[in-house]
Design a protein around this nucleic acid. Structure first.
Length: 221
DNA sequence: TTGACGATTAGCT
DNA sequence: GCTAATCGTCAAC
């Protein structure tokens, strides 16, 4: 059953590449409620953010491809995992068409299977904080540098540690979907901070707290 | 080769 | 509420 996410007695189908190969602003809200499984833990997404590549000053891809961001410029259906603040790994799902560098950052989720593993990885954190924030989510799912570039639309043959994005176990009420400015954005465009490209499910305790980006001095040069 | 910065978090007041 | 921790990345030198 490498082609599905297992939750209890149910199995949700892996989302196909066609699902991700669309404009990121269409894909991102539809990911809410979807199941993500990796390394023995399955979560239900409650919060995501869209990043629109080279036209988005808030995106890592804004300045064009680098060794780190190259995977974002490839086809949809691959993981972009980046390291930040000396401690944390954050995971993105590459979307859109090749060359557009669009991606969805997974920011918040609820653990629905593999609770013991998630708790072990998250130490003494409370259950609602296991995946509350992109760094925590990455830790609970045991994601790191090795996962960048992984094709999550195709079963990992011979690899017991698969990464799967599956359809929701239960339909999501569209009336619960909220949008707002993205967290921590303070890029050179300024306006990027105001784009309402953060999506979350209203009332979910696993949605991370909003924090505006801090204004910084211009980099030298 | 260098050093400022960061799509954050945990811990403390 | 505030801030230290921590290190990969990338632009500048």
């Amino acid at each position: 059953m490498a082609d599905a996410v297992i939750v209890g007695e149910g199995a949700q189908r892996r989302l196909p590449r066609d699902f991700f190969a669309r404009p990121v602003l269409e894909v991102a809200p539809e990911l809410l409620g979807c199941l993500v499984s990796h390394a023995g833990v399955t979560v239900r997404l409650t919060e995501v953010e869209a990043y629109a590549g080279m036209v988005d000053p808030g995106s890592h891809a804004y300045r064009g491809p680098t060794a780190r961001t190259r995977v974002m410029f490839g086809p949809a259906g691959f993981l972009y995992v980046y390291f930040t603040y000396g401690n944390h790994w954050c995971v993105n799902l590459v979307c859109g068409h090749e060359g557009t560098a669009e991606a969805v950052l997974l920011r918040g989720a609820e653990v629905v299977a593999g609770c013991e593993l998630a708790q072990e990885r998250r130490g003494k954190a409370r259950e609602r904080d296991w995946c509350r924030g992109p760094g925590r989510l990455g830790q609970a799912l045991a994601l790191g540098r090795d996962q960048t570039g992984r094709d999550f639309c195709r079963p990992a043959i011979g690899d017991p540690v698969d990464f799967v994005v599956g359809s929701p176990a239960e339909p999501v009420d569209p009336g619960l979907v909220r949008t707002g400015p993205r967290v921590g954005i303070s890029g050179p465009g300024g306006d990027a901070a105001t784009y309402p490209w953060r999506y979350w499910l209203d009332g979910e305790p696993t949605v991370s707290p909003y924090r505006p980006g801090v204004a910084r001095k211009r980099r030298r040069g």
